[in-house]
Amino acid sequence: QVALSRTQVCGILREELFQGDAFHQSDTHIFIIMGASGDLAKKKIYPTIWWLFRDGLLPENTFIVGYARSRLTVADIRKQSEPFFKATPEEKLKLEDFFARNSYVAGQYDDAASYQRLNSHMNALHLGSQANRLFYLALPPTVYEAVTKNIHESCMSQIGWNRIIVEKPFGRDLQSSDRLSNHISSLFREDQIYRIDHYLGKEMVQNLMVLRFANRIFGPIWNRDNIACVILTFKEPFGTEGRGGYFDEFGIIRDVMQNHLLQMLCLVAMEKPASTNSDDVRDEKVKVLKCISEVQANNVVLGQYVGNPDGEGEATKGYLDDPTVPRGSTTATFAAVVLYVENERWDGVPFILRCGKALNERKAEVRLQFHDVAGDIFHQQCKRNELVIRVQPNEAVYTKMMTKKPGMFFNPEESELDLTYGNRYKNVKLPDAYERLILDVFCGSQMHFVRSDELREAWRIFTPLLHQIELEKPKPIPYIYGSRGPTEADELMKRVGFQYEGTYKWVNPHKL
């Protein structure tokens, strides 16, 4: 086992960053958080920038500027975001240094004079007029057009580079997404736009490419001749908990499936790229999406959770019991969808996408189930092999396979070949997804960000279904809070070829 401390991990990262040409360590950078008073800024962006600063992973002359409508001070920003920093008493001095680099400007999102004030403020910072500028839009999409237009007109660096990070949702359907994309691309070049999907920053999602293309053993079996089906799962054990009003506007397909799960599907299904260059990788992902037809209604199961009468606390409440959810809402909190990649490698292999709230566990994984062994000599005792990439929690890679049961006879039983990170790298604290992705933006690497043509294809696949749901308002199937979801989803999976045995229990190697 390799035991690495946080300091050692960050030392390795620093070495990698400083050796590259793309990370300008000594240049002045300004990180501007648009929507600095909001939840995302408070819980994710400010803490992430602090962790990067604490670990010495930001360029040395980096300033952080918050911008929002609320009249706040840096002290206010500190008060609301610091509880999420997880700072230790030993880091007190470092924390003071961090907040000394912070400033805040209040202004409207659609007022040109406010942006001119913001620009004057940035120019007044040390070497601010020639600094590289990175704008993070932690804002609702309704203000994107006004904000990007004003940034472009008043706040661009004339000497350094300018980059803009856009948070999902990128529209509600193909038409609104196209409108937003066309607007942003009329102001910024594609190499300046970073559409963030934080799932692409997760260690195991990034590991998929290495697993596939750096190991000879997987190449020959990664196709329709050997793989019976692919299941991509995202499960949350909690409901909307008072935030249903926002969720109800989008629903589970827009929230998770059309982005996170579809991105994971691309990494499983794509061909080997010409290189690890950002556009070479994204070219292959677009090719996969172009091979997927629009979702067919007979390959869809929609569910909505109801309270568990035997549960406790939140578990007793259904989705419609959330006071922020519109009365009688038919918005799905669970969806199972089957897609097919219609190309030579994957023809006929079902890709089953499942996601839901208020389920029995927290889990995100990719599961490849292989065909049955031909010419069975073990009297149907063999179960199908599976390769599982567990994204969260407890990152893991393992192969479910058959071995001989101890004893006199040739009785096979299920076991696993474990390729888990935790076994080799004991207690290594890896940077989280937002840390990686923000560092990628500083480096100018777009590999783990969504390109406009990729986004367009993703919406093309799901828009007809979303429009049909909005028009017909089908009643989702009720499922109990804390269950596996509607049984109809299991029946759909069985119908397209997935075999669920229920006889195997994964042993978490992190707890051995």
Rank of each mutant, 00 (worst) to 15 (best):
D255L: 07
V256D: 06
V256F: 12
M257A: 11
Q258S: 14
N259P: 12
L262D: 00
Q263F: 10
V268I: 12
A269S: 11
A269G: 08
A269F: 00
E271D: 11
K272Q: 14
P273S: 02
A274C: 06
T276D: 10
T276K: 09
D279Y: 08
D279G: 06
D280Q: 07
D280E: 03
R282V: 04
R282F: 01
E284M: 07
K287P: 01
V288G: 01
V288P: 00
L289N: 02
K290Y: 03
K290S: 12
E294F: 11
A297G: 11
A297P: 04
N298I: 08
N299E: 13
N299C: 08
G303R: 01
Y305S: 00
N308T: 10
N308G: 07
E312Q: 10
G313Q: 03
E314Q: 10
E314N: 11
A315V: 11
A315H: 12
T316Q: 14
T316M: 10
G318T: 06
D321K: 06
D322C: 07
T324Q: 11
T324W: 11
V325W: 03
R327K: 05
G328F: 08
F334V: 02
A336E: 12
V341E: 01
E342N: 11
E344C: 13
R345M: 13
R345D: 06
W346H: 01
D347F: 09
D347E: 09
G348Y: 01
F351E: 02
F351D: 01
I352P: 02
I352W: 00
L353T: 01
R354Y: 07
G356F: 00
G356M: 00
A358S: 07
A358T: 00
L359G: 01
L359P: 01
E361Q: 13
R362Y: 11
K363N: 14
V366N: 00
V366A: 06
R367V: 13
L368V: 13
F370N: 02
F370M: 06
A374K: 13
C382T: 06
C382M: 12
K383W: 13
R384H: 15
N385K: 01
E386F: 01
E386S: 11
L387D: 01
I389C: 07
I389F: 14
I389Y: 15
N394K: 13
N394Q: 15
A396G: 11
V397G: 04
T399H: 08
K400P: 05
M401K: 03
T403G: 09
P406L: 15
G407Y: 06
M408Q: 14
P412V: 10
E414C: 14
L419H: 11
Y421E: 15
G422N: 07
R424L: 09
Y425I: 15
Y425M: 13
Y425P: 14
K426V: 13
K426N: 09
K426F: 15
L430I: 05
P431W: 07
D432C: 15
D432G: 12
A433L: 15
D440Q: 06
C443R: 05
G444R: 06
Q446T: 05
M447A: 13
H448D: 15
V450H: 15
S452A: 06
R456N: 09
E457W: 01
E457F: 03
A458K: 10
T463H: 13
Q468Y: 09
Q468V: 08
E470M: 07
E472F: 07
P474M: 10
P474G: 12
P474K: 11
I477H: 09
I477G: 05
I477W: 12
G482E: 03
G482P: 00
S483G: 10
S483H: 05
T487P: 12
A489H: 11
D490E: 14
E491N: 10
E491I: 05
R495T: 08
E501F: 05
E501Y: 06
G502L: 13
V507S: 09
